[in-house]
Design a protein around this nucleic acid. Sequence first.
DNA 1: TAGAACAATGAAATCGAAAACACGAGCAAA
DNA 2: TTTGCTCGTGTTTTCGATTTCATTGTTCTA
Lengths: 331, 331
Amino acid sequence: MGDIATLANVSKPTVSRALRDSPLVTAETKALVLEIARKHGYAVNRNAQKLRDKHTNTIAVVADFKSFPGSRLADPFSFELLADVAQALSMRNKDLLLCAPAEESHETYQSILASRHADGIIFLGQGQRDPMLRQLAKTDAAFVVWGAVAQDQPYCAVGGANVRGGELVGARFAENKRRRAVFIGGSDKHLEMKQRRLGFEKAFIAKQPSATVGHIAVSDFSYESALAAVTAYFEEKNKTEYPDAIFAASDTIAMAVYKALRDRGLSIPKDVSVIGYNDNPHAAWCSPSLTTIRQDTRQAGSLLVEQLMLMLEGRKPQSIMIPAELIVRES
Amino acid sequence: MGDIATLANVSKPTVSRALRDSPLVTAETKALVLEIARKHGYAVNRNAQKLRDKHTNTIAVVADFKSFPGSRLADPFSFELLADVAQALSMRNKDLLLCAPAEESHETYQSILASRHADGIIFLGQGQRDPMLRQLAKTDAAFVVWGAVAQDQPYCAVGGANVRGGELVGARFAENKRRRAVFIGGSDKHLEMKQRRLGFEKAFIAKQPSATVGHIAVSDFSYESALAAVTAYFEEKNKTEYPDAIFAASDTIAMAVYKALRDRGLSIPKDVSVIGYNDNPHAAWCSPSLTTIRQDTRQAGSLLVEQLMLMLEGRKPQSIMIPAELIVRES
DNA sequence: TAGAACAATGAAATCGAAAACACGAGCAAA
DNA sequence: TTTGCTCGTGTTTTCGATTTCATTGTTCTA
């Protein structure tokens, strides 16, 4: 910056002001400085800026790419969410630091903020880290979470209306006169999964009091483990006990269900209805196309960013639920 | 840092050295400083560090999330690649700055480096930005690109063996005695697409000299535009001219082909063979399961990072092709 | 025409860490 | 006993931009 100043025959502060388009410098000087800076490919050093300004203008985004080490991709839903968060941040001119932390402790995340790596954190996926997040909330850390929105939560979360989503599925199965429904998804440690299951069971049984509801637990949300879980389930039941409706907690799991049903020669939806969650692109493309629950990731992304910005301005953020919509297709 | 120094009864540089585990300080002092720092939740200010050190330890990754504005996700392949690049970077303790630049010019990217935002750039997807990249290569910018590897390229690229991939498909169709093959993919401005098409046509015609090869161009790689393009293609042909083999430049496009064929009551693979590209997870799940070309994104990610690191060390990087593998399934 | 108000600019201090350099103590060799 | 070296530590300077605060002219008002 000193060089530019010399070249323009002004002082460093003037260059700084010109570059930040301050009203304190003449249009003439401004133009001169800008021209010289451009010509020499000069760009202000962001690190000096960050040091001086004491804020970094960047947000750390924590995403779990792999549902477990060595597996293939997590559900594409996470990526849509990431893409939409990225867009929301870029609209506010914030930089996005993508984190896949090695160690999962609140100290790790505190130090991201303490070291001025980022001004705030967005967690894409609450998963099983609720206890850690509660710890983190005790500090003055600025963060928001995509996940279940609950009553007693000491931190700000934005998430789908999971209970409602479950209810929609339960009601739909009931309407179609299904009698042996099964939920397949994660354990109750996963708050979102628990909400979906609860809403589902309640709504289904309310309308079909004499029907039954089962539960298949999967350890992670990969296709492989879901397939293993469903297969095991079928193998220990005899044919008369087979479900006639399956609610999969994600579309990826639903694909594993499709496979298991096809292997057994069961037809979808005649023998068994299937409903998924998230409305992955290919839910619409597969055959039969998959009925599923859609959550608007675009809206989710911008709400997450919006609430975090509120926190950074010192204002109070709000936990928000975004609607769940049943997309009825063939399954 | 000054405070920690006072508390530990030493000077700032000693704290600095202790924290960086320098051999110049006593194990005793080191332990004391570490303990005090931990207790007070102190973390070194990364921005001051970056300013002083003149390098940022962060890499900018440019990813195109949307194939065109307003569309849904780009092909999941990009995300697998992103995930694997993220992992490769985190193994080297590099931070990942995710960029979705508004303006696509070499100046934009130069200024990311000039402003010390990042030390280097990884472009995930060459797309149509080859001319821009050539401009950028004229500067001393450190960057690598996922995309087509070509002879006269003035920059370092890591990419799939697209010609070879195309050849595998062409050979496979020829083996199956197909006579009217069609390639559906992007224009020749997209170097990767061009390579796939060329390899395909050459290999197919070589083994089936009397056969024909057609070409359907799609503007972007979304399901919707692919479906529109295929549909239009079928509508202007009469039945006898229908292809009996279709090579889709991505699995997403292949799904659109599936849909179009199903709509016309054509059976896969009896009437028409279909082969895709990338081996998306659900290529294996759909029915009939999709024969496709696999590229190892894990390897791609670590090679991209490795070559970039070479550049940053001042050594000469190398463009590298990773193998294409034909995954034979039902289609 | 003096004095105030104002507009544009410059000098110096600051952010937090790290490297260069300096220094004193302890020890070995001469 | 003196010189010279190593070891641990402290002093000082530096990185580059920005924000006081001070300083010029300039214009306007009484």
